[in-house]
Design a protein around this nucleic acid. Structure first.
Length: 282
DNA sequence: TTCCAGGTGCATA
DNA sequence: TATGCACATGGA
């Protein structure tokens, strides 16, 4: 079943069970978006989309239809994915409350920079730092700033990144921009995740967790399981009787359970646990 | 004041 | 290979 159609400069999404813009944007996979009273704006590379939900459909307004059809992965049916996920009883309440999550197909280079900044950081601050880096080094697009290209970021010093709030990660950013000069993106696109991990782990500021996020959000690989502080909590709450902080062990066990649907499962678990925690604080 | 956030790098055993 | 610690920053 086709979930969308094109109407001039708009993408109209008709199957709302498979597309909830709040859940998609606020589940932690993307940092460059703005929330308005009646819509969201999303930024990727040097492109922008405005997303309105009203009545029984979503309208995505953009000047690059093809880019955002791919970005929102609109040609993938999530009905089957969710059917498989629902066989894991533990996920059912999450599939219910966080319905309409989709894994976005984001720019791989942008994911590398973004998730290096994400290390030992919180989402609000990650967004703030990325915004400052875009404003300082990205192309002025009028209403917003594009994500700076590698060439643009070559001009940035360690102090520049520090001024943007990157803290001790400024050194990693400065180094990785240079390490990416001959980075083999097609290799990552075409090789199994384990091989790709070995390559990504050589980059400055990229450890196992960040590498998993890059593979999941930047390269559309679903047989990885990023384990952060939230997943450690959720694992200890729902998946084991013996509490553990061992990230390698947690990742291995969760991958064994969810196999090639791990990326999707991870996103539901992360969002669910983080939402619960934030609600209990309010 | 201390703890925490989508952890990583490095020294040490 | 595994463990322990330092690392910026700002909100709770």
């Amino acid at each position: 079943m086709q979930n969308y159609y094109i109407d001039n400069d708009k993408i109209i999404v008709t199957n709302l069970k498979e597309f909830n813009i709040t859940h998609i944007l606020e589940c932690g996979q993307v940092f460059r978006y703005k929330k308005f009273s009646d819509h969201y704006e999303v930024f990727s590379k040097n492109k922008k989309a405005s997303i309105y939900s009203y009545n029984d459909k979503i309208t995505i307004i953009t000047d690059d239809i093809n880019y955002f059809v791919n970005y929102f992965d609109l040609n993938t049916s999530y009905t089957n994915i969710k059917k498989h996920l629902s066989t894991y009883k533990i996920l059912n309440p999450m599939l219910e409350s966080a319905y309409g999550i989709r894994i976005l197909k984001q720019d791989a280079y942008e994911m590398i920079i973004s998730f290096i900044i994400s290390a030992n950081n919180n989402i609000k601050r990650i967004q703030m730092i990325l915004n400052k880096i875009c404003e300082k080094f990205g192309t002025n697009m009028g209403e917003y700033y594009a994500f700076p290209t590698r060439e643009q970021l070559l001009k940035a010093t360690v102090d520049d990144f520090k001024e943007c709030g990157a803290g001790y990660r400024a050194v990693y950013l400065y180094k990785v921009i240079r390490e990416l000069e001959n980075f083999d993106f097609p290799f990552i696109e075409t090789n199994p995740s384990d091989k790709c991990l070995q390559v990504l782990l050589k980059l400055s500021g990229v450890g196992p967790k960040v590498a998993d996020c890059i593979l999941l959000f930047g390269f559309n690989k679903n047989d990885v399981f990023p384990v952060d502080t939230w997943i450690i909590k959720v694992y200890n709450d729902y998946f084991t009787d013996v509490k553990t902080q061992n990230v390698k062990e947690i990742r291995k066990n969760l991958l064994n359970i969810f196999t090639n649907l791990s990326g999707y499962a991870q996103q539901y678990l992360f969002y669910y646990k983080r939402s619960l925690e934030n609600l209990s604080k309010k």
